[in-house]
Amino acid sequence: MAKLNSKHVIWKLLASLLLFYTIIGGLMMEVPRLPILNETIRALYFHVPMWFGMIILLLISAVYSIRYLNKDDQAYDDIAVEFANAGVIFGVLGIVTGMIWAQFTWGAWWSGDPKQNGSAIALMTYFAYFILRNSLSDQQQKARISAIYNIFAFATLIPLLFILPRLTDSLHPGNGGNPGFNAYDMDSKLRLVFYPAVIGWTLLGVWIASLRIRIKRLKSDMNDLEYQR
């Protein structure tokens, strides 16, 4: 029976505990009664951490792309790709949960809100990253060109998600004068679940990414052995 590497057990356990706490605390604890939002304010614990998690995972991905360009080590490229993969999964979940929420608060699944459009463009930028990778066959060329693209993709992400929706009229909480996370920054009760939720969901993303990185490493080890034989 293969054992889990003991140094990895603690943060995986922490991720699990934080997520159980998020679900139980997120549904049971008291929240402010605000018009229009009603109980959907609890989406703060599930929808918003998807985006926070995505940003953190994509930041890790961008950092490893930079390290790849510095060191030219294939292992860094593998890490960059898999963190981008996990980040995009979080982003897709964020956009879908946002659409569900929008249907019941804004009255439409998609209303072309700057926040919705911005996040859709951001996700497509990352879809293009994977298409770019798959269109290049040479391993080194693939890694280098996509690493450069990945850094620019992350740089585009920030204005699309955080700056542009705040400069125009967005209906999204926190934008265009609507109450949102900034408004609740002072609210200790919401913070009590929100921050653990962000950490828990992000760690789960790191866990998933790490599994895929390890599988990639095994595959490259297999290729090496094949070559030695």
Partner: peptide, 19 residues
Amino acid sequence: LMLFLFLTTPLLAQEKQQV
């Protein structure tokens, strides 16, 4: 540079509403 980009993301463009 990346860290700076990341840290400046919560820059405020609108006023806060208190709960």
